[in-house]
Design a protein around this nucleic acid. Structure first.
Lengths: 244, 244
DNA sequence: CGCTGTTTTGACAATTATCAACATAGGTGG
DNA sequence: CCACCTATGTTGATAATTGTCAAAACAGCG
């Protein structure tokens, strides 16, 4: 069930932060040019991750921050009773590994959903740099709080919306994040399985299938396996309404 | 429905951190004696909060950190569709207001569940102090990450456990936190309503009532209004089992 | 002591899970 | 390049959990 890290990962320093296409969404977005140069000295790139590879396992001594450069991943949490719960999906520009800032060991595992590459920043070196660039502290706080906020939004969605509405909210989130990365809002490639979506939303995978099929029947989107064309974006979003 | 801050709150500096009964659970727990003295210079106490008073509203420019000194509170999140979702309960020693570290405005509201008092730390002054005491930065990170973790645990509980199990998990959480504050594990005073518990757990309040009644019939606990005696703690906890 | 808000309990309905069968896709080896 | 094999996805029939609505009991407060 759980694959080990079997990919041949390798590192280089060839692509520098100031030259990276993601710098607008990454740390450098709040740093001066000089500070960016300081940052890129401690950054390493890693290529060659594949589907089902683990970026890290719950319990690892992860002593670095990780930024997804390309590809996507999911975060999973395993309960003391053995239940597995997905608590997040991640795409290029997303920051992972904040676990290790406060606890020595990670509490969650991160698994890639497709071929991927990342940048890593040794946490020690990052801390040293943060002493010189206080901005980095605030950036970390902001990212951490964004995680709190996203989890709370998920709780809200699950407790106050029907299965159908949850799926729409999920698609809306994907679309918005994709849009922020400069891509189309209504053309979604799902890198995660229906089962992943279902687990994340607290539904059965059969339910997710049925709902997506229904949306297609209703002319709100076109399905072709894991590719969704949101042909009627606004109407789809309108199916989420207030509920006392 | 939403009461304004109508309580006559007043401040003093009489109780200093180094003399406070909560110092073991509060910031000072990682600080030296000297650092604690520096911290207490920027701390203010506020008394006189009452049930249903707001500590702050979503959207406020909250420029301070707050520590609950006595009493309890709940955090609520309101969706863009108007749904209200409780995302946390708070007791003495808990830190609130982390919202304001990254965003100018708070994203949630905090409402007291009973008479309460708090300490506040102006965020500006706290930041200045953090420059001198790096330990404070890590403490903040740890607290923020604890919030992430708690939200994720809640998601896990809701998606993988029945209504009955969710209630047990909730009681377990209360008991553990109360135990950590030096109180009994099996003697719970619920400061929140059944409706609050239900909202938090994603259930109907009638369901929570029914479940607690059933536990009483089964001899697992004794109910007297909002006071629960967990007469058979272990058996109660055992009702939460693994689920594939 | 009455009023208001909370809790309990019942009867019923509805959403969604479960189980199972079938269909499809993507990857692998002949 | 095709055929197989395993993963994943779809759809149907059925069952079960939990929500909804409402009425009655209860508690706390002025």
């Amino acid at each position: 069930m759980n694959t080990q890290d079997k990919a041949a990962h390798w590192s280089n320093h060839s692509v520098k932060c100031h030259d990276c296409g993601l710098k607008k969404q990454c740390f450098p977005n709040t740093l001066s040019q000089q500070e960016t140069l300081a940052l890129e000295n401690i950054v390493t790139s890693h290529y060659g991750y594949q589907r089902n590879d683990y970026l890290y396992h719950a319990g690892d001594f992860l002593n670095k921050l990780v930024i997804i450069k390309s590809g996507s991943a999911k975060t999973e949490l395993v309960s003391e009773y053995g239940a597995e719960q997905l608590v997040g999906f991640h795409f290029s520009g997303d920051l992972l590994g904040l676990d290790c800032t406060s606890h020595k060991r990670t509490l969650t595992s991160v698994v890639f959903l497709e071929n991927a590459s990342v940048c890593t920043i040794p946490y020690q070196a990052f801390n040293v740099l943060s002493e010189q660039i206080p901005q980095l502290h605030y950036e970390m706080m902001r990212r951490l709080h964004d995680e709190v906020s996203m989890s709370q939004q998920l709780i809200l969605a699950m407790n106050n919306h029907s299965a159908e509405q949850r799926v729409v909210i999920f698609l809306q989130d994907l679309a918005r994040r994709q849009y922020r990365r400069g891509l189309s809002k209504d053309n979604l490639h799902l890198s995660m399985s229906r089962a992943d979506i279902a687990n994340y939303l607290g539904l059965a995978s059969a339910t997710v299938s049925r709902i997506i099929s229904k949306f297609e029947r209703d002319g709100l989107l076109a399905v072709e396996n894991r590719h969704l064309q949101l042909t009627n974006y606004q109407a789809l979003m309108n199916t989420v309404q207030a509920c006392a």
